[in-house]
């Protein structure tokens, strides 16, 4: 059975791009969210194998959303995908429970490599 992924990003364009990259490579996207509040709601409902999480989003940012998700599922596997590559933010995200951090702009291979490393 295909491994499942949930994509969190406020930009519809970015959700579409990531979805395209992962579905072409055999993963199934079972949930999408456009802010940190939705992210928790959708996560609880779909329980994906992996989450890609943006940081700068309206309503609630991605680092707060990682904390929320880890609080209900400490085994959640989350990769940050953000243009904000500042060391302090990367550390905050990892401390919150994210497993990896991809800095935008990124190539499709980089995303796939990070996902494979976690899901295989």
């Amino acid at each position: 059975m295909a491994k499942t992924i949930m994509i969190v990003d406020d930009a519809a364009f970015m959700r579409m791009m990531i979805k395209d990259i992962v579905t072409k490579n055999g993963y199934e996207v079972i949930g999408e969210a456009e802010n940190g509040i939705q992210a928790l709601e959708v996560y609880e409902r779909v329980r994906p194998d992996l989450v890609t999480m943006d940081i700068t989003m309206p309503e609630r940012d991605g680092i707060s959303a990682v904390k929320d998700i880890i609080a209900i599922d400490p085994a959640a596997r989350i990769i940050m995908c953000s243009a904000m590559g500042q060391q302090a933010l990367v550390l905050d995200a990892i401390k919150a429970g994210a497993i990896d951090f991809l800095v935008k702009p990124f190539e499709a291979d980089r995303v796939l490599h990070a996902i494979e490393r976690i899901l295989i």
């Binding site: 970015m14 579409m16 243009a83 590559g85 702009p105």
Partner: peptide, 22 residues
């Protein structure tokens, strides 16, 4: 989708520059 794409381009531009400035 066009507006979302150009917004994302700007988001990545400013995100990258915020990293350098920080």
């Amino acid at each position: 989708l066009t507006l979302s794409a150009v917004s994302e381009a700007m988001n990545q531009m400013i995100g990258t520059s915020a990293t350098s400035m920080s």
